[in-house]
């Protein structure tokens, strides 16, 4: 009798499990409706909640281009609501006779180490936790972005005004941070600069197993900061609604960098957790 009972339990489990399969039919992609962010509580400037995606990569990382493609797909859906940064860090960034461009930065290496990224391709989405993890494999970026955009109420907005002097290659970047709620917090402002569309070699095992790509387009590459890795503290304690904080940063651009492809990324982060509250991007020559 006991035997029969056990057998019934086991057979029930087997039948139960056998239904545990979801076969997906084509098309495999959803049609995503990205509704505009509610900006009604802003003042004169238009502020949007954007999400910063830091894609840790390396030019000798064979799986990293798959992450770049994922990021392209997400940008195709979310547009400028995503501010992408490609950060070269980790084991696959070494130089040799073929891979001559050093894409690494002090800031990128510090973030890679401090956030225990550990391997590439991995990413941080607003430096916030998704499904228990800070450092996310690229397949989780979409869901994490969705999580960040779910809250449409903007607590803080960032506005950038750039002026670039061609003669001395000096950039002046004026950043305004505006708060839209009364609350208490300690926040910092960080300002990075990126270079887009750099043509250089890249290993891409998934798409080009027989040779590395000689003319790969490296996008959104982090080149450095104007504020230090985690920026400077701009407010601590009580924050008042409609309060505005303005900061000015200057940079003399290295002659090897193409100023037409450079952008400023400015973001407000929680000083303690480093979580990003909002981010904005603007070309040097806007």
């Amino acid at each position: 009798m006991i035997m029969k009972k056990y057998t019934i339990i086991i057979v029930s489990l087997l039948i139960g499990f056998s239904y545990s399969c979801d076969k997906i039919e084509e098309p495999f992609k959803e049609i995503v409706d990205v509704t505009p962010v509610d900006t009604s509580n802003t003042t004169t400037r238009v502020y949007v909640k954007r999400v910063m995606v830091e894609d840790f990569t390396g030019h000798k990382c064979t799986y990293c281009p798959a992450a770049h493609r994922e990021l392209d797909d997400l940008i195709a859906v979310y547009g400028s609501k995503i501010v992408p940064l490609t950060i070269h860090a980790g084991d696959f960034t070494g130089l040799d006779a073929e891979f001559i461009t050093d894409f690494t930065t002090t800031e990128g290496t510090a973030i890679y180490t401090d956030f225990q990224v550990g391997s590439t391709p991995k990413g941080l989405v607003d430096r916030t936790i998704y499904d228990g993890n800070l450092s996310l494999f690229f397949s989780a970026w979409g869901a994490a972005i969705q999580q960040q955009l779910a809250d449409t109420l903007i607590k803080v907005g960032v506005f950038i005004e750039n002026s670039y002097n061609d003669a001395n290659r000096e950039l002046t970047s004026e950043i305004s941070v505006e708060f839209f709620d009364n609350y208490s917090d300690t926040l910092s402002l960080a300002v990075y600069y990126l270079q887009d569309s750099i043509i250089a070699p890249q290993i891409d095992g998934a798409q080009y197993p027989n040779d590395h790509v000689h003319d790969y387009e490296h996008k959104h590459v982090l080149r450095g900061s104007l504020s230090g890795t985690y920026g400077e503290e701009i407010i601590s304690g009580i924050i008042t609604k409609n309060q505005i904080i303005e900061k000015t940063y200057k940079l003399t651009l290295d002659s090897e960098f193409n100023e037409d492809k450079c952008t400023i990324v400015a973001f407000v982060l929680d000083t303690e957790t480093k979580e990003i509250l909002n981010v904005e991007e603007l070309e040097f020559k806007h």
Binding site: C21, P27, G142
Partner: peptide, 13 residues
């Protein structure tokens, strides 16, 4: 499945 783009199978056998 929390992915905004892909229809992902929640149960995979």
């Amino acid at each position: 499945d929390k992915d905004p783009i892909y229809k992902l199978p929640e149960n995979v056998g």
